[in-house]
Amino acid sequence: MDFWVSSQANLTHVTINLICSALAAAYASRLRGTLEFKMGQALTATVAIFGFYAVAILIGRLFFSRSMFAFAVVGAACVSILVVGLRHRLTRARVAIISPLVGEMQFSFPFARIVSDPSKDLRGFDIVLVSLNENVSADWARALSRAMLAGCKIRHVGQYMEELSGAVSLEHFEVEHLPPNGIASYQLIKRLMDIAMVVFILPMALPIILLSSLAVLLTTGRPIFFLQERVGLGGVPFRMWKLRTMRPELKGETLRAAVVGDSRVTPVGRILRRFRIDELPQFWNVLKGDMSLIGPRPEATPLHIEYLGKLPNYPYRYLVRPGITGWAQVNSPPSASADEARRKLTYDLFYVKNLSLFLDLQIIAKTFWTVTSGGGVR
């Protein structure tokens, strides 16, 4: 520490790092939603704050210490997570659900209070949930006005449910819920980032792919790669590459998604799937433009056709490129049935609706945890 503050430049650097850490902690203290969501937001904000500082260092050619900067980033991330955890345990928003104003919407908030009498004083609540599609009587309008004047937030119950769960309600999802400015602008930026990241990662990934290919060849023979038609951007089919982790399909065998403990998975395949190594050849699909690093998981054509007939909102997931990882992949297991596909679609549409760099950073963080913990493997 004496070395770090041994000069005016070092002292300035320490001060700015502390200010950045304080900003990250202050932002973390004001977050709302599920614990997981708030932690993801806190980490994203920490990366963004120190990212701006790093850009300022490069542009202004400011003095900095790599060890001090790294220590500050890690420390700020730990403090932000600690702040989120403590605040989550010590405080909980007081929520009121106005039952006459939520219509037929289904909800389940064990910590919320249902209010059906407009004479009830709502000023003791932090959040009041209503449906903006319902007609508001004069009595309820007065009650809501008093609450708003007292600083209470009036929220749409569906939007609040979406924030807590990270998934949309399919029954209430409409096309106008998609980003009002469209998604083309971010998709262009995202495409450039995909290419840059693959080019950066590929030298490290290639030796792993080669060794894994050799392991597949020596244990189960050819073919080494598994190519399958999947459906991508705009519903256009493409051939997706993977390292083969299952025995070849038998003659007349019906295509089906993998399930937990699937007997078709080979011993080497289980290791490759455990650490997602079998997905690495999809970097080629990303470079070709068939896929992105982050997006809804591409489905096989037969499953795509099946889900189209059962899930009316399913085509909206093809507004963005499919991804190697995505919001649904880190929150829900791969779909092996129409019911699981329906649950996964709620996350896919949440991603399309909230498409942003911050959400992509959260997915990257959750993907790292999923890979290291082995979650979601089939």
Rank of each mutant, 00 (worst) to 15 (best):
F50N: 02
A54I: 03
E134I: 02
V175K: 06
K153T: 12
A42T: 02
G51C: 15
V130E: 12
Q159W: 08
A42W: 01
V83S: 06
E171A: 13
V115R: 02
E176D: 08
G158A: 11
G158I: 00
L178N: 06
E174Y: 10
R146Y: 12
T44I: 00
V95A: 09
F52Q: 07
F64R: 03
H177C: 09
A112W: 02
V115A: 00
A45S: 09
F69W: 13
I127E: 09
T44Y: 02
H177M: 08
V136C: 07
A150D: 14
W140T: 08
Q159E: 14
W140A: 04
A96L: 05
S119L: 14
N181G: 15
A54L: 15
A167D: 05
S137T: 15
P180L: 08
G51I: 04
F63Q: 08
A143Q: 01
R146L: 10
S65G: 10
G151F: 04
A147L: 08
R146A: 11
G75P: 04
V157S: 04
F109P: 04
L58I: 05
K153I: 10
M148C: 09
A48Q: 13
G166T: 01
A42G: 00
S116W: 04
Y53L: 12
Y160R: 07
S137K: 07
W140P: 06
V168M: 11
F107Y: 14
L122N: 05
M148V: 06
L178M: 14
L86A: 12
A141F: 13
E163Y: 04
Q41C: 13
L170M: 06
P110I: 00
V168R: 12
T91P: 08
F63P: 05
F63L: 09
S119H: 13
A147C: 08
Q106E: 15
Q41K: 12
N135P: 11
V47W: 11
I127C: 07
L144G: 01
R123I: 10
A77K: 03
T91S: 12
E176C: 02
V102F: 05
L90G: 07
A112H: 09
F107D: 03
R61N: 10
S116Y: 01
A150K: 14
A70R: 10
A141W: 07
V102D: 01
G151N: 06
S108N: 09
K120S: 11
R155M: 10
V157N: 02
A138I: 03
S169F: 00
G124P: 14
V47H: 05
S137C: 00
T91Q: 14
S145I: 09
S116L: 01
G158S: 08
S145Y: 15
T46M: 00
H88C: 03
I97Q: 03
A77E: 03
